[in-house]
Design a protein around this nucleic acid. Structure first.
Lengths: 237, 237
DNA sequence: CAAGCATAACCTGTATGACAGGTTTATTAG
DNA sequence: CTAATAAACCTGTCATACAGGTTATGCTTG
């Protein structure tokens, strides 16, 4: 069950301990917020040093499977895209992933989230999505704020799709988006292009709020087609 | 850049060190296989104990951003879905994700991989995909082998899509699939159902090998519709 | 001078012990 | 019974030590 078995990696004490900890979570049917035994406890039970247990804890914390904080016991964590975001960033930094590939994946995923969001969004979510889109329109001059709203909007749509995995994947691209977004925006040199981009977001938000899955999906597709054009225009490979 | 900033978590020495290591990878423009400085080196440069550096290394190894092995220096790792697989398993075990949600995501993603694979597969990949599908047909009585071939087929299609992120996501569901697959298969009680399921895979493989994206996407969609029906029939929520 | 081999230097995996500072639990005083 | 206080516990970090695997150095030999 542990990573090293899957990757065929070498078997060391830390991996074994990681396996024991995840097994504990499974066997005790722990859920988010539940507390784990202390490091000393695992150390005694598994007959390994506290050093090893600590490194195992740290590994699980890196994956956000558990949360650590000083003095307190480790607790089972809620799903979080932080680790996936790091993974994707690593892929981009080491040139194993291109920005265009990310956009292809996002396009695929987010057309679906738009559809689902239109079908399943709550009243409050629909309202928030429209607000974010209109907030973008109002922030055309504040690039930083505009970007944050854009990212928040896409994530909110993913959340409204009521499937945490979609939110996980969309969130995974947050980090990279923060680095590439300004490039795409700068490539939209004319006011027309900028207004068009912002307009699409508003119409997308409204379609979702109105519960119109077809239009929402259509607009999301248009949005990504336009974004990819913008990136290519900016010379992003 | 490090996870803790994003999650708003507390700032401790290990997180700082993780940040320093990823910064090193970025600044030195290291790629997969390149060696990192030793633990002692980071320990000296950052003025922290080797304990801290080790825990940071361990955290990055958990995300498969680096590979560790005894005696050798840590090296920058290739993209690997092992950590995402653990994340998804954790989500299922802690009941934050349902199997149906996974199938919705997989359907979305894999319709796209089928399309792209049909467009971009190499000759060898097309051949391998067909072989895997036919191998499944020949293994109708060997459940274990059948499952492994099925998983391998889907992953191979994702690889043929020539976008590593798709392979990453498809691979992320490997672990969970191994646990739920037998349930779905057992629910296909009649020979007809089983033959139909295997037949779809072969036709899918052939469509990809033939470079027919529309048919490939269509068959992948059918495949997932049928699979979801099978799971629901088996009472999986 | 070149090639191969032995050895030394280096590196990671793990253990032990220690202590500061935060958290939880138990105890005691009101 | 409540609230304050003390004790017990827990994590974060450090230093040190050593076994065993890896790499580089330099020496020997052809």
């Amino acid at each position: 069950m542990q990573a090293d078995l899957r990757s065929g990696g070498p078997e060391n004490l830390v991996s074994t301990t990681v396996g024991a900890i995840t097994a504990h979570i499974r066997n005790e049917e722990l859920g988010p917020g539940d507390r784990l035994p202390s490091e000393a406890q695992f150390s005694k039970d598994l007959s390994v040093s506290r050093t090893v247990v600590r490194e195992a804890f740290r590994a699980l914390a890196a994956l956000h499977l558990i949360d650590l904080s000083p003095g307190k016991r480790a607790v089972v964590a809620q799903l979080d895209y932080g680790s996936m975001s790091l993974l994707i960033e690593h892929g981009v930094v080491t040139e194993q992933i291109t920005v265009q590939q990310i956009y292809d994946v996002r396009r695929t995923i987010e057309i679906r989230t738009a559809t689902l969001a239109a079908l399943r969004r709550s009243e409050a979510q629909g309202q928030k999505i429209v607000e974010l889109a209109k907030g973008m329109q109002a922030s055309r001059d504040d690039t930083q704020r505009l970007m944050e709203l854009d990212i928040a909007l896409h994530l909110e749509i993913a959340k409204a799709a009521a499937n945490p995995i979609f939110a996980l994947i969309v969130g995974a691209f947050d980090g990279v988006t923060r680095q590439t977004w300004p490039i795409g925006w700068r490539s939209r040199t004319t006011e027309e292009q900028q207004v068009f981009m912002l307009d699409i977001h508003v119409r997308l938000g409204e379609a979702i709020a109105a519960g119109d899955p077809t239009t929402a999906a259509d607009l999301m597709a248009k949005h990504f087609d336009e974004s990819v054009r913008a990136l290519i225009a900016a010379g992003i490979s």
